Amino acid sequence: MQSSSSPPGPEHLPVSQRLKALRERAGYSIRALAQDLGMGNRFSTYSFYETKQKKEYLPVDLVRRLVPLLSERGDPPISPGEVWALSGVIPGGSDLNDGIERATRAQAPRRNADGTVTINEYDISPHAGSGAIVGDTDCGAGESHASIAAWHMPRAFVENYVSDPSALVIIRVAGNSMEPDFMAGERVMVDTAHRVPSPDGVYVLWNGLGVVLKQLMLVPNSNPPRIRIISVNPTYPMDEVDASELVINGRVVGKWVWK
């Protein structure tokens, strides 16, 4: 009989710890696995899943790419089922493809029967939360910000500009560092799935104190890659950091302009 003080089995550990254990068992470093996943030198994007992931399961698309990389490696060899379990898919009892489809639907956003898609607006003021715009998304850190509204937009219209609206959120600009391009109080739409600072553009960052909008530009020929952090308002200084140091919540893909 297992005593009450015995450590929990792997299946009861947070998914971040289970992912780390499988990676180490497979003999991968964080950097090497990030590269094999197609994330290049931006291994901090992958490391989020081992350090700050809050959801119960990993995204199905990520696990789909992990399966061929981790399976049959390690001692004892890792089974595909162990990897699929990170996304909530447990092979056995039902067809694997059915399980993948169910997990994908469970992780998908709400697409409404009337042809609209629901996009949440979040309060990014410092008192409302810290780190990621949404605490259990795949970026940032800390507690989530407060959802203050739900916008219903025609799905066909949104998909003209963003192929997959599932990761879109709406926030209001805070502060004046991006004036006159982005004025305080204006609403912008952010693709939280786009967390790699390429191409150059306006992104939402966690700067250690709050969530802010900044223009990001890759420093040409830098190795490791370095990113310039630029404020449109010239009274704010420009900064430059290694790409691996950035905590990016997403890319700004649109804003409301009232005439």
Rank of each mutant, 00 (worst) to 15 (best):
M1T: 07
Q2F: 13
S4K: 14
S6Q: 14
S6H: 09
P8L: 01
G9V: 05
G9T: 03
P10H: 06
H12M: 11
P14W: 07
P14I: 02
S16Y: 04
Q17D: 14
R25M: 01
A26H: 11
A26I: 03
G27T: 11
S29I: 13
I30Y: 12
R31K: 07
A32G: 12
A34Y: 11
A34C: 15
D36C: 00
G38E: 07
M39N: 10
G40D: 01
G40C: 06
N41I: 10
R42V: 02
R42W: 05
S44P: 03
T45H: 07
S47A: 11
S47F: 06
Y49E: 05
Q53E: 03
L58Q: 03
L58M: 06
V60T: 04
V60W: 00
R65W: 12
L66S: 02
L66Q: 08
P68T: 04
L69D: 03
L70H: 08
S71N: 01
G81C: 07
E82R: 08
L86V: 02
I90K: 04
I90S: 02
P91M: 13
G92S: 01
D95V: 13
D98K: 09
I100R: 12
R102E: 12
A103Q: 08
A106S: 02
A106N: 11
P109Y: 06
R110G: 11
R111V: 12
R111H: 05
N112H: 15
N112D: 15
A113G: 13
G115K: 15
N120P: 10
E121L: 12
E121Q: 15
Y122V: 11
S125V: 07
P126H: 06
H127K: 14
G129P: 01
S130I: 10
A132E: 12
G135H: 10
C139P: 00
G140Y: 04
G140F: 00
G140H: 05
A141D: 13
S144F: 04
H145S: 08
A149I: 08
A150Q: 11
H152F: 03
F157D: 11
Y161L: 01
S166T: 07
S166D: 05
A167E: 09
L168H: 04
I170Q: 07
I170L: 00
I171S: 05
M178P: 02
E179G: 02
F182L: 05
E186S: 07
R187H: 06
R187Y: 08
R187I: 10
M189Q: 01
A193W: 06
V196S: 02
P199R: 12
P199H: 15
D200E: 06
G201F: 08
V202F: 15
Y203D: 06
L205G: 09
W206G: 01
W206V: 03
N207S: 00
G208H: 14
L209A: 15
V211N: 05
V212L: 02
L218T: 05
P220M: 00
P224C: 09
I227A: 01
I230D: 09
S231M: 10
S231Q: 09
V232R: 06
N233E: 00
P234F: 13
M238Q: 14
M238T: 13
D239V: 13
A243Q: 12
E245N: 10
I248G: 11
N249W: 03
R251M: 12
V253S: 10
V257N: 12
